[in-house]
Design a protein around this nucleic acid. Structure first.
Lengths: 350, 350
DNA sequence: CGACCTACCGGAAACGTTTCCGGAACTGTT
DNA sequence: AACAGTTCCGGAAACGTTTCCGGTAGGTCG
């Protein structure tokens, strides 16, 4: 198959070789059914023997659909994004579509201009926007322009009309807290992400609700803030652990923060999990690399990428879709960073 | 700027608005200098006010250059590839080019067919191929077809005519070994990668040469093989550490193997670095996440991606380039997984 | 003053598809 | 035997650019 063929074939050459018109070749290429079986076979054979694949740009120009899908991602390197990207890329590949990767570096201006370019001139058929920095209004503009896209892991609350895929933050937080509570912990600190982010607020809701449900009074001093990076997580944890009456467990709102917390604990001579239990969120690869391996809430990142793709495909094909917002389940993965509350703490509460 | 503009502008509309021909608009778009300054300004203003960007597909069709560059990568998820990808994507963005991401899952057939598709029909102007599974001959075919591409981190030795970017494996291995030797280690095990890979063979060469240079007899039993993943690294390390006369240090040919080795050591009650020193290779993020933090040889992964892009750009612009194969320096990053050889080992050698 | 340059610009072809429209050859019906 | 309906297929326009080729206007030079 696919003979070396130094020069690339065009549809015209295939047509000549097969003794038909280019219109007919195009028809068999696109699987139309108004072609006689013999003709179809003949064309197929020529194509197979000469290794032809259509020029996507010409197709894009003519038909308006190119098979290119933009994927806007803040950064490609952090495992969190890489995993979503991997899932999306794989799903897109299966659909014979191509990924146009666009890292925005979390820069708002860059994000806006990239989205603009992707929309314009039929450069892409649609897009996936991961953790968008854009406001709901800006996204609605793209929506109104008729550009199909889906948001993965929305950073801010979005308008209902905007298709999105996210994880069940609150339920995940709830699972984590229930588990900690069941281990006897009563003073449970929380190190949150940036306020305002839906990931932060939903998890916070889960944290507080679980506390309330267990009849544990909420202590504002136990809830501190961090960005989602290790150093800041470590700093925040240091504060928490330095309190006169420190927590026996920490619920970190992502794995980076959890790892920072582990470092802070180690620094203060606290053993994890004997003296301090830690649970994270996300379950990126790091979580199972550190010692002790991290108990954490798993987000199905790759699956979110895949799901976003199938939502986008539906958007591309038909015009309207039933559910525009999909939420994927999270689940607690118990590993080694959690243990029953230390005896003295138990005694204190008892 | 860039007015909402529900409908997309074409070059024709810009031309009409500016009162010139489309040829002239195209000229200012492409920075040709045969346009009067007034005309140029007028066109620029119209473009600015209406937020026009050219249709890449039309451009690709007409001019043969699309600004799309394929990036073939085995997987996008592992940090190793993600980092190269991030570097390449950033560099490409700066050049106003777009990344067409194509994960091959290490499958040879998929790689061949993807490359074929990228080449054909001017889908992309060129490509970056990371850790290609393809044979040198197959790549030479693409070369002869006149398709510009550069290989990043070649898996197998490549023909001289194939442009490539890689890291100084042997020098890195040499640095690692010298350091271990300087710490007094004499029985130093090596856990290599798959035989035949240039990364493996070059590092092996470095390992053996350093041993020879230090007048330490090479013990074949100390050199074992693993793939580049953690579990296999752990298994290999278990073998090594279970020997009657086990090594006091292990040079793991990548960080995954090093991490596997740490696990095996822990399992056997060995303290790292007091009882066993470990050095890795790559310096992916994991290396500074584990405890103890890993001493390892740093490969400038992102930089390799960027370098590959600039090489590709040069290939795209002119036809011939001076150096086709670029090797980037590696350097040993000393962290916490290495220490002087245990006293009894020293005594034994003394 | 005529010839020749140069600077600037427009017309039109070309790139490789898809798709609309219409026509030819059959098939079946009356 | 004439007609309508199908089935299959080709011609040609259209998509939005780039670029070749040629033309006009003004300037310079002898």
């Amino acid at each position: 198959m696919t003979v070396p063929s130094g020069k690339r074939m065009t549809i015209r050459e295939i047509a000549d070789l097969a003794g038909v018109s280019i219109a007919t070749v195009s028809r068999v290429l696109n699987g139309r059914d108004d072609v006689a079986v013999d003709t179809r076979e003949a064309v197929r054979r020529v194509i197979r023997e000469h290794g032809y694949t259509a020029n996507r740009h010409a197709r894009g120009l003519s038909a308006g659909r190119t098979g290119f899908v933009g994927v806007l991602v803040p950064l490609v390197f952090p495992a969190y994004f890489a995993e979503i990207l991997a899932g999306a890329a794989e799903a897109l590949y299966e659909q014979e579509m191509r990924v146009v990767l666009s890292p925005t570096r979390h820069e708002h201006a860059r994000e806006v201009s990239l989205l603009d370019r992707l929309m314009h001139g039929g450069a892409t058929d649609g897009a996936l926007i991961v953790l968008p920095n854009e406001s709901s209004e800006e996204l609605e503009r793209a929506l109104d322009a008729g550009y199909p896209f889906v948001v993965v892991d929305p950073l801010m609350p979005l308008d209902d009309r905007i298709p999105s895929v996210s994880a069940a933050h609150q339920s995940g937080a709830d699972q984590a807290m229930r588990y900690l509570l069941s281990l006897g912990h009563r003073r449970i600190g929380a190190i949150t992400g940036p306020p305002g982010w839906v990931a932060t607020e939903d998890r916070r809701r889960g944290y507080r609700a679980a506390l309330a449900a267990a009849n544990v009074a909420f202590d504002p001093a136990l809830e501190v803030e961090a960005d989602f990076e290790i150093p800041d997580g470590e700093a925040a944890a240091r504060g928490l652990l330095g309190m006169p009456d420190p927590p026996t467990a920490v619920f970190a709102f992502n794995d980076n923060i959890a790892i920072g917390t582990m470092r802070a604990a180690r620094e203060q001579g606290l053993r994890v999990p004997e003296d301090l239990s830690i649970v994270g969120f996300d379950d990126v690869e790091h979580a199972s690399i550190v010692t002790p391996r991290l108990t954490t809430v798993r987000q199905p990142l790759a699956e979110m990428g895949r799901t976003a793709v199938s939502l986008l495909i539906r958007l591309l094909e038909q015009q309207s879709v039933e559910t525009l917002s999909i939420q994927l389940a999270t689940r607690l993965v118990i590993r080694e960073s959690t243990a029953p509350a230390p005896a003295r703490a138990l005694a204190a509460t008892a």
